[in-house]
């Protein structure tokens, strides 16, 4: 990671980004660069706007100002669906869609942005096993999973699309320590294989276990915005 950004470099470049919610600017002037293999842990008090920053990076929300690029290209040039596939957000509250766990894992391969990529059952089953989920879960109704199980299925669902950048919002918030280690292992392996990760976590030791650099977002707090 380097601050400030190197706009034309390969990887995710964020330049002078301002993020708002409900008309209030939360963060101003955030710049960072993530190259393949980088892991960055975002720190700062609750309510600062860390989750909003992740939403803005994947394009679920519009950012107020600044620029986001991957390999020097803005999201619109990728096409928004393709952008969200390569800059993949796994939200804190895992959302399971109707159908089985397998249906959820297969979901992203049904859409245009998959560009013909096919769902590999073996890879998916191996990923679930790596994350400490039993094979018997495969056909279970996804909405009946526990919070911890759903959180890991959500991570697996994102990893299967081979994203270039993983945006992880409290990825181990509902997990016991052993399951959290498995999630961290899966993230490290994805980054070793060429992905980059931006992680929001309230576990102060998680960054160290992930081999992450830490970026404190507090200096980017917008004037007049009081984090809780």
């Amino acid at each position: 990671m380097s601050v400030p950004s190197r706009a034309a470099d390969a990887g995710l470049s964020v330049t002078e980004l301002s993020v708002a919610a409900g008309g209030t600017t939360l963060l101003r002037g955030v710049s960072l660069h993530l190259a393949a293999g980088d892991v960055v842990a975002l720190s700062g008090p609750s309510g600062l706007g860390k989750s909003r920053l992740l939403r803005a990076l994947c394009g679920l929300d519009t950012h107020e100002a600044g620029d986001v690029r991957l390999d020097g290209r803005p999201p619109a040039s990728w096409g928004w669906p393709a952008w969200r596939r390569v800059v993949s957000l796994v939200q804190q509250r895992a959302v399971m869609l109707p159908g089985s766990v397998a249906d959820n894992l297969r979901l992203a391969f049904q859409w245009q942005s998959a560009c013909g990529a096919s769902f590999d059952v073996g890879t998916a089953r191996q990923l679930l096993s790596d994350l400490g989920l039993p094979a018997s879960l495969w056909g279970d109704e996804a909405r009946r999973l526990s919070l911890g199980q759903a959180q890991r299925v959500a991570l697996a669902r994102a990893l299967l699309t081979s994203p270039r950048v993983l945006l992880l919002d409290e990825p181990t918030a509902s997990l016991d320590p052993a399951s959290a280690r498995r999630v961290e292992g899966a993230v490290r392996r994805a980054c070793a294989a060429g992905a980059a990760a931006l992680v929001v976590s309230h576990d102060p030791d998680q960054g160290g276990r992930l081999g992450a650099e830490t970026l404190d977002l507090s200096p980017f707090r917008a004037e007049g915005h009081d984090a809780a």
Binding site: W80, P81, A82
Partner: peptide
Amino acid sequence: RDEVECRLCLGAT
């Protein structure tokens, strides 16, 4: 809205 955004996050149009 969470479900719609979940699909968007996974690359749905």
